[in-house]
Design a binder for these strands. Structure first.
Lengths: 331, 331
DNA sequence: TTGACCGGAGCAATCGTTTGCACGGAAGTG
DNA sequence: CACTTCCGTGCAAACGATTGCTCCGGTCAA
């Protein structure tokens, strides 16, 4: 690797001046600057990001951390793309890790990121009280929580209006005439799942339909869970005529369960999912969903984080994006 | 951040000894070791990875780079998981970037990785001659190419037997009695696409079916491309009775096109895709595919890279994994 | 003429580790 | 008892950058 020293030697100048040629070019005599630039070009010099990060104060290290539950979930993959695109446009690198919704794993990666001297971290908290995050934020690490939120914390956050989204979904079903709408909910210790459930309840109430507890089943987030819970719900008497499923993978699982029972969608059972899928169009039938603007969530989070770095004392920002109902043919 | 100095002070000892307590504990007097350990625990000391990487020689820096075309493609997401799981099991961090199949972007990220002092890089080359990679490898950077290969280079690689996979797919169609099997191929400047096309030709030849050039269309890798090319192929006279599509996203696009024309799968047109999808089961109809062991590709690549780091002079390894035909209901 | 000021450049400390070398004392050997 | 050997530890030099401070020569105003 070519270092400052090599460039300095070639240009016949001190390394301090070479360094300034990069970060404060206005401080050099024009003639010196061109000489240094020529030397850098000749040697194909590239600053060493590691050394730079070691020396730099926080906020100027050009590295940011992103911890997501699972990169194989298209929702998080889309967030990741949003974050990355903004990051690289600003010459930040991104360090990405998967927590698998596991607090220990998350804590481990938070440690790695600290130890890698990231400028800040973007992540969906695993639950409302995620202690590792709260501690880290209190210690001064810039953090932006996305998707889910932490209770009574004053960190920057980007969320989606889950309650509203769920309301629209269920409202749509009810307007189509469905009277028996069941729900497969997600882990109730994450804010999004709770809000989606509230939205479901709101919609029922708005249509004067009594809430039936046996029409609500709570799972985790995995495909298998959606499959199993749909199976259960479809044995209820009377059988629900529509299903509202709280996340993408569980929706796919639920569709499988419906197909396996030989029921037709939407004739026998209508289904609507939270989160869009890139191939929702090709599913059987094309799936009606509440689409979250995941890319924008990632983009906004990264922008918020960069803003925070340049102004650490600004009040915490709270962005709330609107989801959108996408009608296809499953209802 | 707590540093070696803090621990050293608390333990009443020099930083050199504290450092050795971590990397060469056997060199310390047992009593000293316990004292140091106690101090580290009390202060909750965590070594600074940046400083460590700056000092360490290549191969012991505990960071590896992964450049993939697009994290939103489930195939690459699965590879990424394989890489990450192995990496973190060995206490390596992973730096992940998306090249978008763009040589410039790739070259940029290769630069970033060099500058981040990664120990090695895993990536599918964008094309056969990818100059930036070849140059970097020649300069001594350990590189493992996955999925696709570089011409006449002696770097470690992990591939899938694409020709065999394609053969099995098309052979399956022909055995079912299809006589007119069309193919949507991928970019012919990547090895995998070419091999898949060869496998297609092999199968036709094995069944004594003449190759019709107008039954082959070449696209890129995107959904839209699959859609458009399927549209074209379906206007051929006589119309193909089966489609073999060379990658996952194009397959979804092709399915859309078939549906849009009101044709039924598999009655009017059978379809078989290369690459599995997590929700292939829920597609209309459940999609028969050639499944690549993507997770294993990632895992093996990471293992190969780690092995390479511990033995830089070993001859280049070349792993070839077998894909598997997964029968569902689209044929 | 003198002193203040300024622009441009270099010196050297610093970030947190790792590690070759030196040193001191204890143990072993003849 | 003198000499080597060895073990445990510390000193200090790296790694590659950034940056406060100093220094030097020139300009300008009084």
């Amino acid at each position: 690797m070519v270092s400052l020293t090599d460039v300095a030697k070639l240009a016949g100048i001190s390394i301090a001046t070479v360094s300034r040629a990069i970060s404060h070019p206005e401080k050099l005599a024009p003639e010196t600057l061109t000489r240094v630039k020529a030397a850098m070009a000749e040697l194909n010099y590239r600053p060493n990001r590691v050394a730079r990060r070691l020396r730099q104060r926080s906020g100027r290290r050009h590295l940011l951390g992103l911890i997501i539950p699972d990169i194989q979930n298209p929702f998080f993959a889309e967030i990741a793309r949003g974050v990355e695109d903004v990051a690289y446009a600003n010459e930040f690198a991104v360090m990405l890790c998967n927590s698998d919704e596991n607090l220990k794993k998350e804590a481990f990666y938070l440690g790695v990121m600290q130890s890698e001297s990231v400028d800040g971290i973007i992540l969906p908290p695993i639950n409302d009280h995620d202690p590792a995050i709260i501690r880290l934020a209190a210690a001064g690490m810039p953090i932006v929580s996305v998707d889910r939120s932490l209770v009574n914390s004053s960190i920057d956050k980007v969320e989606v209006d889950n309650r509203q989204g769920a309301f629209e979904a269920v409202d749509h079903l009810l307007r189509l005439g469905h009277k028996r709408v069941a729900m497969i909910a997600g882990r109730q210790n994450v804010s999004t799942s709770r809000e989606r459930r509230l939205g479901y309840e709101d919609a029922l109430a708005a249509h004067n339909i009594p809430l039936r507890e046996d029409y609500i089943r709570t799972g985790d987030y995995k495909q298998a869970s959606g499959h199993a819970l749909a199976d259960e719900l479809l044995t209820r008497a009377p059988r629900p005529t529509a299903l509202f499923v709280s996340n993408n993978l569980m929706t796919v699982g639920a569709m499988e369960a419906i197909h396996k029972r030989g029921l037709r969608i939407p004739e026998d059972v209508a289904i609507i999912g939270f989160d869009d899928l890139p191939w929702a169009e090709a599913l059987d039938p094309p799936l009606t969903v509440v689409r979250q603007p995941a890319y924008e969530v990632g983009r906004s989070a990264a922008e918020l984080l960069l803003k925070r770095l340049s102004d650490p004392s600004a009040p915490a920002a709270w962005l709330r994006l609107r989801p959108k109902l996408i009608l296809r043919s499953s209802c």
